[in-house]
Design a protein around this nucleic acid. Structure first.
Lengths: 173, 173
DNA sequence: CAAGGAGTGCTACAATATAACATCTGTTGT
DNA sequence: ACAACAGATGTTATATTGTAGCACTCCTTG
């Protein structure tokens, strides 16, 4: 069972929070989950997960690749995409389709039809799990005889902080 | 005002419907809308719109490009992307982020936070406009102080017909 | 007919993603 | 110990999707 506090799934990440805690919690949860399932969280996979968790902004595969190269490690696109595939399959990261980018999942190992709130100014992206949204989509689909398998729900706009005009802008991107 | 019947926005496209009517209605609605707004629906733009409407399945930019070349017309990627940009800006087509593909909008010129139901077997994609879904997302976002600007809601699964095992599979794609 | 703008043609390139095969590494059965 | 195997990673090449930038045409307008 993941030990990530529920708050991180329901609140928008604050600007000043201790992000090192997010990272270490995510790595610990990932290790536990892989252990439980008999999967190998290799150093490469762990490093990619750590890079994805380097912020609460989605990160592109090639940005991850650049970081890996910076490690002194040998790396090419498949290096990154294979690690991401592993992490995606286990729900440790999510793919943001509208950005071609990836973000860490704060609640891996739990079934959750997820939605994302993406601030276009600071880039901060919150994973939320609102049952009302999932229910509304489920009803809408079933009324049309449609069986839902996968949901892509990505909402862009401005987070509270950036509406104030106080938000820091997107980190060098 | 678009003359497209409301049904096409709320029902899943039937396999045997008269698709030529969809196409001609879409082209007529587009011409009317552009006329109204003083925009030019050039032959190229009209042809791209027609190709997008060639089915109720999303079509990729390079598939459109191939068709244009088949016309005997000179065409390169920017040819297609510029036409698509024009059509997207006017709401005549939508982009399906999870497929990197485009589909015609049956209700252009009308504000509508839209959702897509995408059948993974036959590829048929329905544009629906369920206020409950939009409302649920709006509430969920506003409770978190988030201002919604853009919604990407793409639901994949199986349409009624394909659950029966009667669905034809995706047209050569 | 000069000037300007919108639309398109064209070349090159950027950004994202995958195929295919080689190599390494750790485990397992003998 | 060692052969055999499977999973993971390295490596090269290539596929797919999308843009930048500039030239040219055509039409409008003064």
């Amino acid at each position: 069972m993941a030990t990530t506090p529920r708050k991180s799934r329901t609140l928008f990440p604050r600007a000043g929070h201790n992000h090192a805690q997010c990272v270490s919690a995510a790595l610990a949860a990932a290790a536990a989950l892989c252990e439980r399932d008999g999967q190998r969280l290799t150093p490469l996979r762990q490093r990619v997960l750590e890079l994805v968790w380097s912020s609460h902004q989605p990160i592109g595969a090639y940005a991850i690749l650049d970081q890996l190269k910076g490690d002194g490690r040998s790396a090419a696109p498949p290096t990154v995409y294979r690690a991401l595939e592993f992490l995606l399959e286990r729900g440790l990261v999510h793919r943001i389709e509208s950005l071609n980018a990836f973000i860490g999942c704060p609640a891996p190992g739990v079934e959750h039809p997820v939605q994302f709130l993406i601030c276009r100014r600071c880039g901060t992206t919150a994973e939320i799990d609102d049952r009302r949204v999932a229910d509304a989509i489920g009803k809408s689909a079933s009324e049309r005889g449609f069986t839902v398998e996968r949901r892509v729900i990505e909402v862009s706009g401005l987070c509270l902080h950036c509406q104030d005009g106080k938000g820091r802008s997107r980190a060098h991107a």
